[in-house]
Nucleic acid binder design. Structure first.
Length: 432
DNA sequence: TCATATT
């Protein structure tokens, strides 16, 4: 009441939390009310899909202080499951937030023989050092870089500006590098970037000098011309100014090399692998409606699927009459900016033991013959981009899903047998 | 082995 209207109070000490596992139907006020039971909260922002404006199932929560933020985290993270969610709330500092709060510095180009004491002596001129660690390898040998935390951002900034590129430690011909430490996100990006270039380059190309590599900043451009250390060893700085990472891991571009996999690509056609193309039972062929480019749904049936009589009406596998599927695989399945499209109850499949090299496209293609595929998603590890070998396929009808189960469950694809089941249903029937 | 998503 007597409280002044708090506009955007994104002050230095307010803290942003990221919250996952938020049911898409919840509103910001509902969430605000809920979080206020546990901590002071200034604001809740639901994260929405740019295109559809619908909730992406997560939100940001702004707390006035770190203490309040911690209260919210401790009370909610993995502790509460909101109605309709499949797993408990995920409540954590938003990307970059911890780093921003800690004003952590990275120090590079340290001579290997320099110890904590010497680093401390130099940097304590700018403020009280809260934390300092020199990175060391197996024999405790210094990696030539360190992380350092001050109590305040101002102290860190002062040190950064005074020392970066300017101060040479005794016996060193090269000035120290001081920059804001990478955020977790940047580290992940770098990791993924490296994994990717490793996958596409010859394995001998990675002979970077480790300490130099670690010292080179990715996003930070110093206010002066160069660091001074690029000349001596002839190491160019240029390669480190990388473009934003490509989120598509290299294997997405790999052609599946198994013959069965090729058979899954209508655009390649079964004739690419005549030896692997098995003529399907006539009854099945006859019952399958003529769809351009899709006339070989049984290609992978060849010897792989136990020839079971189709007990359900053959018509039920019709891919949603007259869809605009003009032949190639890349049409209806992969659309929709980010969010997965879910089909009606009973039309969504969970699939396990998907071959490692399959991506969304390949999965969609594999399940296309049984009906209109609304979405197909293979799950990949966030950091490495490696497939987790499971995923989801959604159809527009339960009949299509049943057909896919009967044809594809137990089907040997790659090394293992597919497991194809109805997706578990998390949503409880709406109470009114 | 069942949707991990950072305005």
């Amino acid at each position: 009441m007597a409280e002044a209207k708090e506009e955007s109070k994104s002050s230095e000490e307010s803290v942003k939390l990221f919250v996952g596992q938020v049911p898409k139907h919840m509103t910001e006020s509902e969430l605000l009310a809920m979080f206020k039971e546990f901590a002071l909260v200034d604001e809740v922002n639901i994260i929405k899909d740019k295109a559809t404006r619908s909730s992406r199932g997560c939100c940001f929560v702004i707390c006035p202080s770190r203490e309040e933020a911690d209260k919210a985290v401790n009370a909610c993270h993995n502790k509460k499951t909101l109605p309709g969610a499949s797993s408990p709330l995920q409540v954590k500092y938003a990307d970059g937030e911890l780093e921003r709060l800690e004003h952590k510095l990275f120090i590079g180009m340290l001579p290997k023989n320099v110890s904590e004491v010497e680093v401390s002596a130099l940097f304590s001129k700018f403020g009280t050092i809260k934390d300092l660690q020199i990175l060391r390898g197996s024999q405790q040998t210094s990696k030539g870089c360190a992380f350092l935390k001050y109590e305040t951002k101002e102290q860190a900034l002062a040190a950064l500006e005074a020392i970066n590129g300017k101060h040479k430690m005794e016996g060193s011909s090269v000035p120290l590098v001081v920059k804001w430490a990478d955020t977790e996100k940047e580290r992940q990006a770098r990791r993924a970037q490296r994994a990717q270039s490793q996958a596409s380059n010859a394995p001998h190309a990675d002979s970077q000098h480790p300490s130099l590599f670690g010292a080179l900043p990715m996003g930070y451009v110093p206010p002066y011309n160069g660091y001074g250390y690029q000349a001596p060893g002839g190491y160019g700085i240029m390669p480190y100014r990388m473009p934003p990472m490509q989120n598509q891991p290299g294997y997405h571009n790999m052609m599946p090399h198994m013959n069965q996999a090729n058979a899954l690509r209508p655009e390649l056609g079964p004739n690419m692998n005549p030896r692997n193309y098995h003529v399907p039972p006539a009854s099945y062929v006859g019952s399958y409606p003529a769809v351009p480019g899709l006339q070989h749904p049984i290609a992978y049936a060849g010897g792989m699927i136990s020839p079971r009589p189709m007990s359900s009406s053959p018509g039920s596998i019709s891919p949603a009459g007259g869809n605009g599927n003009s032949g190639t695989s890349s049409s209806s399945a992969s659309k929709s900016s980010g969010g997965q499209v879910e089909g009606p109850p009973g039309a969504n499949l969970f699939i396990y033991h998907i071959p490692q090299e399959f991506g969304d496209q390949e999965l969609a293609t594999a399940f296309q013959p049984f009906g209109r595929v609304l979405s197909a998603k293979v799950f990949v590890d966030k950091a490495t981009g490696v497939s987790k070998c499971f995923g989801f396929v959604s159809y527009d009808s339960p009949e299509a899903a049943q057909s896919a189960i009967s044809m594809m469950n137990g089907c040997q694809l790659g090394g293992k047998k597919l497991k194809v089941q109805l997706k578990r249903d998390n949503k409880q029937s709406k109470p009114y």
